[in-house]
């Protein structure tokens, strides 16, 4: 039992500090990727609803392909493709090749994957806004942009929230896959700690507890958000 505390101690011989640093990067990557995914999702959904045939077709290919291929395969593909693309641009401009920081690669890779899922969530939510509300906003003389920001998006959010909450939980758990491409986050830190001390069981349980904590806290936040966003709406049930 004493050894458990020794292993999990925050300072040097213990690995607790490494695990917590891993947790911080995991949260940073997850938050960044989630923000990126949501931005892609809102634009993608608007594109799917209002876009021309070419844009709609392209978005359909994007959401279908991303959702049909395993995340791990996508992460590897995007990881290499992103690095290569940036280096091709940099070398053609006469700069040196760079190795991107794991944090940013993680955000871009997971965000791009999440974008496909959130596009579908937002598409459904936009479709659930009553047309009368939009007509009323237009009748008052709001511009197209104002109709979106003042009426459609606030009304759409409560419909999107359950799906988005789910996606956040998936995002936090998907970041663990980045360990496979060597991005330093909780899963990789854990694997290193476990490998160095041979206390596999202890460290994987510890990491599991940290992930579980993130999930449970997130659940509380989303429950609060949902109550807030649904203010003034008829109670369902």
């Amino acid at each position: 039992m004493e050894q458990v505390f020794e292993y999990l101690a925050f300072s040097a011989p213990g690995w607790g500090g490494n695990l917590l640093r891993g947790l911080v990067s995991t949260l940073q990557i997850a938050l960044g990727a989630y923000a990126l995914g949501m931005s892609i999702g809102i634009l993608g959904a608007l594109g799917k609803i209002h876009g021309g045939p070419i844009l709609r077709g392209a978005l359909e290919v994007y959401t279908t392909l991303i959702r049909a291929v395993p995340e791990l395969v996508l992460i590897l593909l995007l990881f290499y493709a992103g690095q290569d693309a940036i280096n091709v641009i940099l070398t053609s401009l006469g700069f040196e090749r760079v190795i991107l920081d794991g944090l940013w690669v993680g955000i871009y890779v997971i965000g791009f994957v999440q974008g496909a899922y959130s596009t579908e969530v937002f598409r459904g939510a936009f479709g659930a806004v009553a047309p009368g509300q939009i007509e009323a906003a237009r009748a008052i003389g709001m511009s197209r942009l104002k109709v979106q920001t003042r009426v459609v998006i606030p009304l759409m959010l409560p419909f999107a929230l359950p799906g988005l909450a789910n996606l956040w939980l998936i995002t936090t758990k998907d970041t663990a896959l980045l360990a496979v491409v060597g991005v330093s986050e909780l899963a990789l830190e854990t694997r290193q700690a476990a490998g160095a001390t041979r206390a596999y069981f202890l460290f994987y349980v510890a990491a599991g507890c940290l992930y579980l904590l993130v999930t449970l806290v997130s659940n509380q936040i989303f429950a609060w958000l949902e109550r807030r966003l649904r203010r003034g709406q008829p109670v369902q049930g």
């Binding site: 939980l169 758990k173 998907d174 663990a176 896959l177 360990a179 899963a187 854990t190 694997r191 476990a194 041979r198 596999y200 069981f201 994987y204 349980v205 990491a207 599991g208 992930y211 579980l212 999930t215 449970l216």
Partner: peptide, 23 residues
């Protein structure tokens, strides 16, 4: 259900293979 759904499958997999497997 909460534990399984709240932790990454990758960690579960490693816990079972490396963790249990090492015991």
């Amino acid at each position: 259900c909460t534990v399984i759904r709240g932790t990454p499958l990758l960690i579960q997999l490693w816990l079972i293979y490396y963790g249990l497997g090492s015991l």
